[in-house]
Design a protein around this nucleic acid. Structure first.
Length: 279
DNA sequence: AATGTAGTCAACCGCAGGCAT
DNA sequence: CATGCCTGCGGTTGACTACAT
């Protein structure tokens, strides 16, 4: 959008800080400053660069607009799929999602999500991503069943919590509430989320190359696990999801979000036919 | 052509976590 | 250990633009 001519922010000054749209002159100053001093120390930027902007504002401008590695232009269908799937994984952790999409900012993704999915109107790409996801889920269920059958013969009553299907499990029942509603948000969310962050950091760092969707399958593990245990495994609420990720820990905050997720990821009512196509 | 509505984007605010003192 | 500052994050707002009526 560039800098709005002089939008309604009014270019006021509050406590000596300028607010509202940035001018090209300010941009230039900020870029020059970062070039010389690097990122960080935003609070000193105003003094050093001669900007009447708060550190916060400078940082935001840089991160969301001036950074040279920013990718301009529309979100591609592939990126869209990635966003959807990562959102399934991480919820509204836009910065985390953004890290997996080079050149995209959390703000951009957040805005994109709001405008595209908030109202429960998933695009074709979303539907495709979802279908792929469901297919994967179905396959994993089959695999797991087979494994259980073969293991069952050998191990008798071994606690299934131990297998985890490749995931480290903090618990078995997924806290992915398919209606998108919060599953006792007060409970485990932060802890589990932190765990998830650690466990999948390396995955997140890997993804988003040409074969992004392949890589995506890697990180989908936790989600898949969660879904495997999903509704059928009971929605008692608090749990540690398979890999510690909680897709739903934040959704409950908004009814709208819940509705959106209901429409997107409500697997409870989804019929997965033999071809793997859902609904 | 004028008006209304929805979509998009940039920027703000408040809060929380991390770190230094 | 307590406190204060800085940074980063997520949510929200408001203006502009595009499209529909």
């Amino acid at each position: 959008m560039g800098e709005g001519p002089l939008g309604g922010w009014g270019r006021q000054e509050v406590n000596g800080w300028r607010k509202g749209p940035w001018t090209s002159q300010e941009d230039k100053l900020l870029v020059e400053h970062v070039r010389q001093h690097g990122e960080g120390r935003w609070n000193s930027v105003s003094k050093l660069a001669g900007l009447k902007r708060s550190g916060k504002s400078c940082r935001l401008r840089w991160v969301n607009y001036l950074r040279p590695d920013l990718k301009r232009g529309k979100i591609t269908p592939q990126e869209e799929s990635i966003i959807v799937q990562l959102h399934a994984l991480w919820g509204n952790r836009w910065s985390t999602i953004a890290r997996s999409l080079p050149g995209r900012t959390d703000n951009e993704i957040k805005n994109y999500w709001r405008t595209h999915f908030k109202k429960g109107k998933p695009s074709k790409n979303i539907e495709r991503a979802r279908a792929r996801f469901l297919k994967q889920r179905r396959e994993m269920m089959q695999t797991q069943q087979q494994q259980q059958q073969s293991l069952g013969g050998q191990l008798g009553g071994e606690d299934q919590n131990q297998d985890g299907g490749g995931c480290s499990s903090a618990g078995t029942t997924a806290d992915v509430d398919d209606r998108g509603s919060a599953v006792d948000g007060a409970g485990l969310a932060p802890t589990v989320a932190a765990e998830a962050g650690h466990q999948h950091q390396h995955h997140r760092d890997l993804i988003m190359h040409d074969d992004a969707m392949m890589e995506m399958d890697l990180i989908m593990c936790p989600m898949s696990c969660a879904l495997l245990h999903g509704p059928a495994a009971g929605m008692q609420g608090r749990t540690g999801s398979c890999c510690g990720s909680t897709a739903s820990d934040e959704y409950g905050s908004s009814e709208e979000d819940g509705a959106t997720w209901g429409s997107l990821w409500n697997l409870e009512g989804v019929v997965v036919d033999d071809a793997g196509a859902a609904w």
